[in-house]
Design a protein around this nucleic acid. Structure first.
Lengths: 230, 230
DNA sequence: TCAGGACATTGACATTTGTCAATAAAAAAT
DNA sequence: ATTTTTTATTGACAAATGTCAATGTCCTGA
C-alpha cells in the first residue's frame, strides 16, 4: 500500500523512525546489531505495565495502543503507528514500564536493546538533542490531553479524540476506525456507553456520519466549536 | 530557617539544583555568567503560558505553582519548591511556555539563559543523561496524576493531593498549606466548593484534622484506602 | 448452517459533580 | 478601628455521567 519496506539492515531500511536521522552509518549498524523483528496479532500485548523494559520499540506495521491500567478502567495515552517508536520514561528511571502496550491491528515491530540506545544518546549529542526534542513534543501532547480530559465535558472530549484519529492516526476523512468503542471510551475518559451515546448525538446533529466503524467528520467547524466549548 | 543560602557564584552556591552535580567548575561558571536573581511577591506571575521561554528557572526560596490555563478553569500541574527548577518542554520545541507559573509565597529564583543550558546539554553527556532522567521522572509523575484525575472520584483525588502536599511539598504532618482552596481544587480537577466539601467530609469522618489552613492526616491508612478506591 | 462469544446499542435509573446564590470569615486597606 | 475586598463555607438545585440490565449485531469456529 505504500513505499515502506523492511530491510535486513537498519542502514538501508526506509522504515526506521526519523529519530535516527542523526546517526552515522556506523551507529546505525550498532542499532542493527541489537535489533530483532517481532510480529503481533491484533489484541496481543507487546508489554505490560510494571514489567522490565529492555527494549526500544519501533513500529513498522500495524497499530498499537499505549494504555495505563488504572482502577478498573484503562486510560489510553496514545496510539502508535508506523514509523514511530515506543520508549517510555521508565527506561531512564528504573527500567520498568509505566504503561502497557497492545497491538490493535496486526502489527510488526523492531526491538532494539535499550542499552545500545542509551549508549548512542551519550555518544552522539545531536541524537541526544533530537531525543530530548521528541520527549518534549510528547510532553506537550500530554498537556493538551490532560486539559481535554479534565476540563471538557464528554462531547468536547470525543471531538478531540475524533480530530486526533483523523489527523494523527488514520490521516483521512472519512476514516475507518480499527479501535473498539471501548477504546474510544478509554481515549476520552468515559464509559463505553457514553462514548456510543455521544457518537450517536453527533450523528443525529449531522456533524458526523457514523456507519459501523466508518466515521466521517461532516461539519468540521461545528465539531471544532464543540471541542472548544468543552 | 535552614542552611540554604545564596551565593554570588554558582560554584560555591549551596542552593543550586542537584541537576547541576555533573557539571565541572568551569561549566558552573558558564551557568553563573548567564544568571540573575529575581524576587517575586506572593501571587506574582513568573511567566505566562504562550510567551517566549528564554530561561531555565531555579527556585531558591518560596513556592510556585505551574498551571495550565484551560477553558475557564486552571489545572495546576505541580508545585515547585527550593531547590528545584522549572524548565518546560517548549524550550526544545518552539521556545514557548506551555503552562504558566506564579509565586504562591514570597519567592526568589535564579534565571539562567536557556541557550547556555542547552549548550551544556550538548557538551556534557552526563549532564544530558541526568536531564533526561529528570524529564522521565516528571513524565512518570504526570502519569500518576492523569490517572488520578481521570479515573478517581473526588475523595480519591483530594486524598492524592493531600499525600502530595504532605510528602513532596510541606514535608511534615500536620502541615500548613500556603495554597488556597481554589488551588486545591485546581490541583484535583474540581470546583472549589467541591474541594471544600470533601475536606469537610474527611474531617467529619475523623480522617483529617482541618483548622483553617492547617491540615493533619490523622488516619493515614483510611486515607490511603480512599485514594485506592477512587 | 448454527451456536457461542464478543462487541455494540439502548433505556431506565442512581450517583456524582458543578453552578448559583447567600452568608460567614479572614485579610487588606484606609 | 472600620470599611472594603477577598476568600471560605454552606445549601439547594440542575446537569453530567456512570451503572445496570436487556437486546441486537457481527464474527468465529464447530
Amino acid at each position: 500500500m505504500n513505499k515502506i519496506q523492511e530491510s535486513e539492515n537498519c542502514r538501508n531500511c526506509n522504515c526506521k523512525s526519523s529519530i535516527f536521522r542523526n546517526l552515522t552509518p556506523d551507529e546505525l549498524e550498532q542499532i542493527n546489531q541489537g535489533r530483532y523483528t517481532v510480529h503481533y496479532k491484533a489484541g496481543e500485548i507487546l508489554f505490560k505495565q510494571g514489567t522490565p523494559s529492555p527494549h526500544f520499540v519501533c513500529l513498522t506495521k500495524g497499530l498499537a495502543k499505549l494504555y495505563i491500567e488504572g482502577y478498573g478502567k484503562n486510560l489510553i495515552l496514545a496510539l502508535v503507528k508506523p514509523v514511530d517508536y515506543i520508549f517510555g520514561p521508565g527506561s531512564y528511571v528504573d527500567n520498568r514500564h509505566y504503561y502497557s502496550a497492545a497491538a490493535v491491528e496486526e502489527t510488526t515491530a523492531c526491538l532494539v536493546d535499550v542499552n545500545i540506545f542509551k549508549r548512542l544518546i551519550k555518544q552522539n549529542p545531536d541524537f541526544a538533542e533530537e531525543f530530548i526534542r521528541r520527549v518534549s513534543l510528547q510532553a506537550i501532547f500530554n498537556f493538551d490531553q490532560v486539559v481535554s480530559l479534565t476540563q471538557k465535558q464528554m462531547p468536547g472530549r470525543i471531538a478531540d479524540v475524533l480530530f486526533y484519529l483523523r489527523e494523527k492516526i488514520y490521516e483521512k476523512n472519512p476514516f475507518e476506525i480499527t479501535i473498539s468503542r471501548q477504546d474510544l471510551a478509554d481515549l476520552s475518559g468515559m464509559s463505553k456507553e457514553s462514548s456510543i451515546r455521544i457518537l450517536k448525538e453527533l450523528k443525529e446533529e449531522g456533524i458526523l456520519r457514523v456507519n459501523g466503524n466508518t466515521i466521517e467528520i461532516l461539519n468540521e467547524k461545528q465539531l471544532r466549536q464543540i471541542s472548544q466549548t468543552g
